[in-house]
């Protein structure tokens, strides 16, 4: 378990003080996949850098398995950094080393023997699907392949926690998908806790179980992905979930429409078209107020905001209908206030 308690971090710049983290507390259970989402300048990168003490917080505690990391010296932190590893947006591979030697690098640092390191390195490249690229140099690989090597490198020391700092932000959607799939399988196979920093809801919806919405240096909301995304409570969360602004949603609501958020978690897209069949079978013609879905392979990922005309009865009918579909989560979006 990794636990953040009241983290604060202020940067003193020439242009004045910047409070990157005002008061951040967060508990991440072992084996979880947690997304930390926020707009630029929300403090995401500072937060993730605090978790392995690349950035020292001014105040607060970081507990890894009950041990406070903030009181450790640089030297005492070195073994901890084998347990909490990191991948980056720009991959950060050693350009003058081939893939295998890149993966072996953390093992070299750990004092693992050359032959043993090579063996482990090969296994890891195998695991990320690049077993045949041991001798290639980073410049000979695509972005997605480089990130795979970086993942293999991050796994070399058998970490407990993998921090991903915008790990897919430099990649195209298809590659992003495959990297996220890889992260998910690593989480399942190896039980590694994954903490993912991103500005993309898509990424969070695809692999995260929990999400924290970071806004201006504080955690605005933290909970189940479906819960948070289907009924965002704070202004910051609403802004993320409804990038077009929820005024439109309010206007629709005043017309007597109820709103439903449908999240597709890899549901079968080859079968029946869900929204259309609902219209035919129930006679409920849902308005698609917002949609961001993507078909990968034969699966649908993404989310949709539906406006359901009629009253409460119609809404309940629609909810129970949609819930029956596989790999789809449905939630009424309540407009409080």
């Amino acid at each position: 378990m990794i636990e953040l308690q009241h983290l604060q971090k202020t940067f003193h710049t020439a242009g004045g003080d910047v409070k990157a983290l005002k008061d951040v507390s967060l508990v991440v259970p072992d084996g979880d996949i947690v997304g930390i989402i926020g707009l630029s300048g929300a403090g995401k990168s500072t937060l993730v850098r605090c978790m392995n003490l690349l950035e020292r917080p001014d105040n607060g505690k970081i507990l890894l398995g009950g041990r406070d990391l903030t009181i450790l010296s640089e030297k005492e932190l070195r073994p901890i950094r084998k347990e909490v590893t990191m991948i980056f947006q720009d991959f950060r591979l050693l350009q003058q080393r081939n893939c295998l030697k890149n993966v072996c690098f953390p093992l070299e640092l750990a004092g693992v023997g050359r032959e043993e390191a090579r063996k482990r390195g090969k296994e890891l490249l195998e695991l990320v699907g690049l077993g045949d690229r041991c001798d290639s140099y980073p410049s000979q690989l695509s972005g997605g392949q480089q990130q795979r090597v970086a993942i293999a490198r991050a796994l070399a020391t058998d970490p407990k926690v993998l921090l991903c700092d915008e790990a897919t932000s430099a990649l195209d959607p298809t590659t992003t998908r495959s990297i996220l799939e890889l992260l998910r399988s690593i989480n399942e196979k190896l039980g590694i806790t994954i903490i993912l920093i991103t500005h993309s809801m898509q990424v969070v919806e695809t692999i995260c179980r929990h999400v924290a919405i970071l806004d201006k240096g504080v955690v605005a909301e933290y909970g189940d992905v479906e819960e948070v995304f289907s009924s965002p409570k704070t202004a910051a969360a609403k802004h993320l979930v409804f990038p077009e602004g929820d005024e439109a949603a309010h206007a629709v609501d005043s017309d007597g429409m109820k709103q439903v958020r449908v999240v597709f978690n890899g549901s079968d897209a080859t079968g029946k078209p869900l929204i259309a069949t609902m219209a035919i079978e129930l006679g409920i013609s849902a308005n698609i107020l917002y949609a961001s879905t993507r078909n990968i392979g034969r699966k649908t990922y993404g989310s949709m905001l539906l406006g359901i005309p009629g009253g409460e009865a119609e809404l309940q009918k629609a909810l129970s209908y949609l819930e029956k579909a596989e790999d789809v989560t449905v939630k009424e979006v309540k407009q409080d206030e």
Partner: peptide, 20 residues
């Protein structure tokens, strides 16, 4: 970035200089 990555892997200053 590469230097920071090495730091994140627990490399000592000497290792960062000589190996990175």
């Amino acid at each position: 970035g590469v230097v920071e990555a090495a730091q994140s892997m627990g490399a000592s200053p000497m290792k960062i200089i000589c190996k990175v």
